[in-house]
Design a protein around this nucleic acid. Structure first.
Lengths: 115, 115
DNA sequence: AAATATACCTAATTTTCTTAGGTATAAAAA
DNA sequence: TTTTTATACCTAAGAAAATTAGGTATATTT
């Protein structure tokens, strides 16, 4: 398999975190940034990315600005105010998720366990 | 939401790791163990669990033994040899996944970055 | 001239999960 | 004693989120 099934359900979180970090980004830029950050280990497919961006926009979490650069279209996305709030929640969920998965991975390091 | 969408795609990994740790377990026991490990934060629903167990069995990764305890049926699952090998892969994938998500979460702590 | 990179998109299908049921026994609470 | 909760299994319909496999178009590199 290319990407492990573990990445299922994480795309929205990834998009919002990148936009929080970088202010505004366009779709293709997001795919390249993820490749770079993960040293090529995670590839965001366009068939997943674009529908996800459109959904976030329709939910009012992202705003779009279309620009023409080098005679090619770019759709820049940025977080709305509501999107920024939701990003905070997403980050808390991600941290909790990682903690819980690490607890399963390392059964002797349970949260709150006295050693 | 009950469980964050981040857990999508992680159920098989969780099941196999628990079976690797505990030798053999039955379905209900798995749901309780996950609740316990995650301090109630993650709830495995039966509608997800049982189909997942049946799929792993049909793929030859799990073996089943049915036992009657207190006049109730229990289906004990354990890893096959092939299942044990696959669990090693799953654990590697989980560790890589966590590393990559942490890289996105903490953009200043990229893997291999000189600090 | 052809291939690769940039940049957007959608539609059909698959995977995985949620929701909402169902059956049955045992123990605890009202 | 009746009802609820816990134990223990199950499935089917639908939703969510992805994969796969296309499509269009321009710019750059081979």
């Amino acid at each position: 398999m290319k990407n492990s099934s573990l990445y299922k359900g994480s795309l929205t979180t990834i998009i919002m975190k990148l936009l929080e970090e970088n202010g505004r980004m366009y779709g293709y830029e997001i795919t390249q940034k993820v490749k770079q950050i993960t040293a090529g280990e995670l590839t965001i497919t366009e068939g997943a990315l674009y529908p996800a961006l459109h959904k976030l926009e329709s939910e009012g979490l992202l705003d779009v600005e279309v620009e023409r650069v080098d005679n090619r279209l770019r759709k820049y996305y940025k977080l709305t105010e509501s999107g920024e709030k939701e990003t905070v929640n997403k980050m808390a969920e991600l941290e909790e998720f990682i903690r819980n998965m690490q607890s399963i991975l390392s059964p002797d390091v349970k949260p709150g366990l006295q050693l």
